[in-house]
Design a protein around this nucleic acid. Structure first.
Lengths: 154, 154
DNA sequence: CTGACTGCAAAGGGTTTGCAGTGCT
DNA sequence: AGCACTGCAAACCCTTTGCAGTCAG
């Protein structure tokens, strides 16, 4: 993250709140800043502790609410499927996943191109590599057909 | 999944149990068969219902225990981080993740090569595509250094 | 001012664990 | 026969929700 990047993100955030008609509260600002200022992809509780250092009175449920609100707004994204629980897979051969962000269903696909891509050197610095696969996100045909509201359903 | 693939997986499963010194119970066999016979990446409860149709007396907690046991054995894998809760990310520009299977920490990395790869046509049949990124799994340097037992820690 | 937002506390739901009985090897 | 495995039920933990007071616009 380059210098000034955090401020840039915060400004974008303020503008997006205005556009979405969300009130710009201190809690929201600090919760966003907490996520935006780290590369560690924190979970709700971690964000909570970080924000608490500056706003001792914030509550954990506000953190949860805010995090999902901002995610729905498109200002944050989540690592891994949205609200999902663990899903299991017995297919041990190399393959990739298409995951529907609405219903959580995942479909496999193969791609020689993807399997062949070499990972950057920098990875080695992180640790050992056990495997790699592509995760494609979208809205599956079924969910699109059901055509419910964009947000709010599982 | 080709014909006979299921039987192949089941045989590999039996052999692996023998090697690992795990008792080959009917519950284990059916739970594995349930996951191995579908491409739907079921969660614990879905597996539970499927197995129950054939073994009405299995309990949900056995399904959970078995699923994680088989995952630790390497006979199953999970979609998304291991036991993890949702993690949030304020980095909206295209990037990829290196995820430690032990501690769950995720690190970002960039790769022009990866960004450039074209997805196979078949994807279009699944639904719309919102985004795609690579998820690399491994054991991070810190966890490797701590050198705890391979299984069982968060 | 007024409706949206927060904090509190309690409910909710999925997952894990302790224990005693069962069954595989 | 011995010990791992299962089923049961309670415990656990994270997450969500209802409500009343508060605050941004």
């Amino acid at each position: 993250m380059g210098p000034g990047e955090l401020e840039l993100r915060v400004e974008r955030f303020k503008e997006a709140c205005r556009q979405a008609g969300l009130k710009l509260t201190l809690q929201r600002l600090e919760i966003f800043r907490e996520v935006a200022s780290t590369m560690a992809h924190p979970d709700a509780e971690t964000v909570f502790h970080g924000v608490r250092a500056r706003l001792p009175m914030v509550s954990l449920d506000t953190v949860y609410r805010t995090l999902w609100t901002l995610t729905d707004l498109g200002l944050l994204s989540t690592l891994g499927p949205r609200h999902e629980r663990a899903r299991f897979d017995a297919n041990l051969s190399p393959h990739h996943h298409y995951v529907c962000i609405r219903c959580g269903q995942a479909k496999d696909f193969q791609s020689a191109d993807l399997d062949a891509v070499r990972l950057p050197e920098s990875i080695a610095g992180f640790g050992t590599v056990i495997g790699a696969h592509v995760e494609v996100r979208g809205v599956c045909a079924q969910c699109a057909a059901n055509g419910k509201a964009l947000v709010l359903d599982t």
